[in-house]
């Protein structure tokens, strides 16, 4: 393993993040605040409580998931797509680095960025609503795993994409709808039975449910299934990336 190369890629990606820190920081804070104003104050006043938790507090884990999933995906996809776009990918391809080195560097940086943003949202949310975290270690584990597996997914999207439109395609058309329909703003017990059954096919539900459990001890699906889902998703992403580097798909001609 080329540890120096991993650190080099990681540092370069983090430097890019810190160059646009205002944008990286202000954007999630602003959107989270807006969600709290719209869903927490306006709609939340009509709902009162969900599963014994005040609605404003109930949506905190979902909002965090919404943001870190989209941020992890977009950060990782942009991280690897940009060198492809401007042509500097030749350096990575001609350097003595393995697929694992490159993946750890890029995905590690994207996961760190989304972890940072997740923390920012948590702090921002605390300014709007009062909530507690029942299982802080489980919360941290879910947070890190989600950042990691969606960064892996973003990395795959970045390699697959051949233009900026494709880069946005999956986050916009797949991830965001799945997150919204995966219980970000509601518990699936609030849905009619048919929609409850359909929602069980949404993989994001398991992540949000597990994450919410770490906050309030309530989950739509068993926590063990949530952990299994996120682990399987991470493993599948890693296997896909390994295959990409082995075959050179979309990166080597």
């Amino acid at each position: 393993m080329n540890t120096r190369a991993i650190v080099t890629i990681y540092r370069m990606e983090m430097a890019r993040f810190f160059r646009t820190l205002t944008q990286s920081f202000v954007s999630p804070v602003l959107s989270t605040s807006l969600y709290f104003v719209v869903f927490g104050a306006a709609i939340g006043s009509k709902i009162q409580e969900v599963d014994g938790v005040e609605y404003g507090a109930f949506i905190v884990p979902g909002l965090m998931m919404l943001t870190i999933m989209t941020q992890a995906t977009s950060n990782a996809s942009f991280g690897i797509y940009f060198p492809k776009f401007i042509g500097t990918i030749y350096e990575i391809l001609s350097a003595p680095v393995s697929f694992l080195d490159v993946t750890i560097g890029y995905v590690g940086a994207a996961a760190t960025k989304s972890l940072f943003i997740g923390t920012v949202i948590l702090v921002t949310a605390r300014m709007f609503v009062d909530f507690s975290i029942q299982n802080p270690f489980a919360m941290l584990a879910f947070l890190i795993l989600t950042c990691l597996c969606f960064s892996l997914l973003g990395f795959i999207i970045g390699i697959w994409a051949s233009n900026f439109e494709q880069l946005q395609l999956i986050p916009l058309l797949v991830i965001t709808p799945l997150v919204f329909l995966g219980g970000t703003f509601y518990s699936i017990s609030m849905l009619p039975p048919l929609w409850q059954s359909i929602t069980l096919f949404n993989p994001v539900l398991y992540l949000i449910s597990g994450f919410r459990w770490s906050f309030y001890g309530h989950a739509d699906v068993p926590v063990s299934i949530s952990l299994l889902a996120i682990s399987v998703f991470t493993l599948v992403c890693m296997l896909v990336i390994r295959w990409i580097f082995k075959t050179g798909w979309r990166i080597r001609s």
Binding site: N2, T3, R4, M12, A15, E91, A95, P96, V97
Partner: peptide, 16 residues
């Protein structure tokens, strides 16, 4: 947007 010296450090680091 990289500085000249940073982009050189990056190249060196990539090669371990």
């Amino acid at each position: 947007f990289e500085k000249v010296i940073d982009t050189m450090r990056f190249s060196r680091g990539l090669f371990g």
